[in-house]
């Protein structure tokens, strides 16, 4: 039990006549970066809000850092960092003022300089927050999420609206953190770049779970050539056998693995 940062069993939540979360199980180990994937309306946000203690549940058991979020008080909140979806609060404060202010709520916060360098905002220390670019603003949000040295960090669609360079910078920021992370995202490359484990949710349930490179039999390759195709977990052996059989180049040879996107779209039932 204690090596789990998050443990969820049979979580249920309905809004009037819609079932948002329908018997969801989730285990996140301490130190793990977990990505939660799923289409809009799959129940991602509801699940995360329940874990953050911002929403009540209808059924199931939830333990976040050993505490039921519905009863988590200030001492529990001090162990948790939340990076919300795009916000634009505190625009008139400077970056340093806002980080120092949020740090006051925590017993052993990171220092200002350490926090700034973790997110790469040293040069924006005295800028008004409303003057930051979208990417800088998100990195500030992460700074505010980690300044209290959380044991568990929630990242909700952190790179929506980023340009590719800003996303790479953001990813290296997250990789540098030494904490358990629950990340929700729409970007499969983001999950692949950051997550140790991926959980795919559809219709309020977990439809698949695993490491990004083995999720949904991604480790099975398809070898196809002019006269046939074969699924294998050792494509090199198949190609060697075919080469020997043809006595030279294999006509029309290709070896493919499904991308995470292929697997994901299959899992959530999108016809292709």
């Amino acid at each position: 039990m204690t090596d789990h940062a998050v443990r969820v069993r049979g979580l249920r939540k309905s809004y009037r006549d819609t079932v948002a979360v329908d018997g969801l199980d989730l285990d996140i180990a301490v130190g793990e970066v977990r990505a939660l994937l799923g289409p809009n309306g799959a129940g991602k946000t509801t699940t995360v809000e329940i874990l953050e203690g911002h929403r009540s549940r209808d059924g199931g058991s939830v333990s976040v850092l050993g505490v039921d979020p519905a009863r988590g008080g200030s001492s529990w909140r001090r162990e948790i960092g939340i990076v919300l979806q795009a916000t634009d609060d505190a625009g008139e404060l400077t970056v340093a003022e806002m980080i120092r202010h949020v740090a006051r709520y925590f017993p052993r916060p990171r220092g200002l300089d350490e926090t700034l360098s973790l997110v790469g905002l040293e040069s924006k220390r005295d800028s008004r927050i409303r003057r930051l670019s979208g990417g800088q603003r998100r990195r500030l949000d992460v700074a505010l999420g980690i300044v209290g040295r959380p044991r568990l960090l929630f990242l909700d669609e952190p790179t929506t609206g980023f340009d590719p360079e800003a996303r790479r910078q953001f990813w290296s920021t997250v990789r540098a953190l030494d904490t358990t992370v629950l990340l929700t995202t729409h970007y499969l490359d983001e999950a692949e770049a950051l997550a140790d484990q991926v959980t795919v949710i559809a219709g309020g349930r977990v439809v698949a779970e695993g490491a990004p490179d083995t999720l949904g039999s991604r480790d099975v390759a398809t070898v196809s050539w002019r006269d046939g195709r074969e699924q294998t977990d050792d494509p090199a052996a198949v190609v060697a056998r075919l080469t020997a059989a043809y006595g030279g180049p294999v006509p029309g040879l290709s070896v493919t693995r499904p991308s995470l996107e292929d697997v994901y779209l299959d899992l959530i039932g999108v016809p292709r």
Binding site: E52, S74, S75, R77, L84, T87, D89, Y105, G148
Partner: peptide
């Protein structure tokens, strides 16, 4: 404004009475 720009939501996530 605090409700609209996310201030209230951020504060609810902090260990603040």
């Amino acid at each position: 404004t605090d409700r609209d720009n996310g201030t209230l939501k951020r504060l609810r996530g902090l260990p603040m009475p």
